[in-house]
Design a protein around this nucleic acid. Structure first.
Lengths: 231, 231
DNA sequence: GTCTATAAGGAGATAGAC
DNA sequence: GTCTATCTCCTTATAGAC
């Protein structure tokens, strides 16, 4: 393993454990067994390192998301994609990378942190990377749930992201919430719980009246075609 | 306004904006217009300050949560409390404190941060303060949703907490997710969206088979009506 | 109680020898 | 490419005058 890779591995682990802001470059080089100057030589700055760590992982995950969504889209056409499949296409790839390797949940926790660590550089990096992805998912969701106002649809999908991100970031928090009574760590079970909860939540009857609210989106389809109150 | 209070106000604002770890005591004293040494004189340390900031706010919110839950509990007796009311009892008090004063969402964002800023001191402080509250809510939830396994029930309530915390912490993230198309800031609408989504999610058909896991509780509806098995 | 001054150390980043 | 040494800045915390 060459020096840049050693640094990336160590940084990933530390970012997952302590967060981006709280991880010092000095702790990274100590964990990687390389020199202090190596990070700046290879990545330029701390922000450059964070960016590189993500670039290595976020791409494949988002590609898998799009691939799954395309698959479900094709299978459902010309009907809208079922809610469950939209949610699964978004959630599963984020967990998939976890169960493959021994490192377990390091990646998952780092990505969870990416969603919850607000403000500043990190948030900007995330947004840059997933903007296109979100447009894609919202487009599909709009067809599946036309009875929701644009606003409520966006809120609901943000709830899905939040629930997923939180459980990715700190699976052990679940155990804490239950005073240790509940086992933790089975990714397949977690995915299943998330799918049930989020799908039902997305499909809940609309809260907004569908009226003046629907916002026209450039390049998107007209929102709120038929108004059906479906559970 | 005396010095300790000035410090608490300024700290609250900064913690909400930048997070606990990223807020330096120097920025707090600068914002409060007091001296560097004042914090240590009045609160002993940074951790002492964090603790004091929460002690001032978390108590009343959790008291309001319990009060609401008791009210709904009494109104429903001897039936289980409806899911919507359990969720509302948990969510509304966290937003209520927001809309009262001009400070707007400072408090809300700080509490959101409290939920999402994982690890270390802050998490320990939170857990200490809300342990009793969680036991109470889970007890009520167990009666309302006896068809869920204990594990799935705990997961689902953690999703509720996550969704709420995320929107409390960064309401502007919603706007970002939607490329700025969606307006933000109406607390009552946000509560309404959360209630719909979370209630439906909690009430979704069980994913787990109810076997050895479920803790038996008296007085529930039949379990697992129309269940389509999905991984 | 409040201030100035300062201690003691960690942060990110860089220059220059090898 | 990798190292040592160092710069500059910022952090928490404290000592002691007023």
């Amino acid at each position: 393993m060459d020096t840049p890779e050693k640094i990336l591995e160590a940084a990933e682990q530390l970012f997952a454990d302590k967060g981006f802001g709280a991880t010092s470059l000095r702790s990274v080089v100590a964990a990687a067994g390389v020199n202090v100057a190596a990070i700046h030589y290879h990545f330029g700055s701390k922000e450059g390192l964070i960016r590189a760590v993500f670039a290595r992982r976020l791409g494949p995950i988002n590609a898998a998301r799009i691939e799954l969504l395309d698959k479900y889209s094709a299978a459902a056409a010309p009907q809208p994609v079922p809610v469950e499949e939209i949610v699964e296409a978004f959630i599963r790839p984020a967990f998939a990378i976890t169960s493959r390797e021994a490192k377990q949940s390091v990646l998952a926790r780092m990505f969870g942190r990416l969603h919850t660590e607000a403000g500043g550089t990190v948030h900007a990096i995330l947004l840059e990377e997933i903007r296109e992805l979100l447009v894609r998912f919202h487009t599909v969701l709009r067809q599946t749930l036309p009875e929701l106002s644009e606003t409520e649809r966006v809120y609901r999908f943000s709830f899905v992201i939040s629930a997923m991100a939180a459980v990715l970031m700190a699976p052990e928090r679940i155990a804490m919430l239950s005073q240790g009574r509940v086992p933790v760590g089975n990714p397949e079970a977690t995915i299943s719980y998330l799918l049930r909860f989020c799908s039902a939540g997305l499909r809940a009857p609309a809260s907004d009246r569908v009226s003046s609210d629907s916002v026209q989106v450039a390049g998107g389809e007209p929102a709120n075609a038929g108004e059906s109150t479906r559970a």
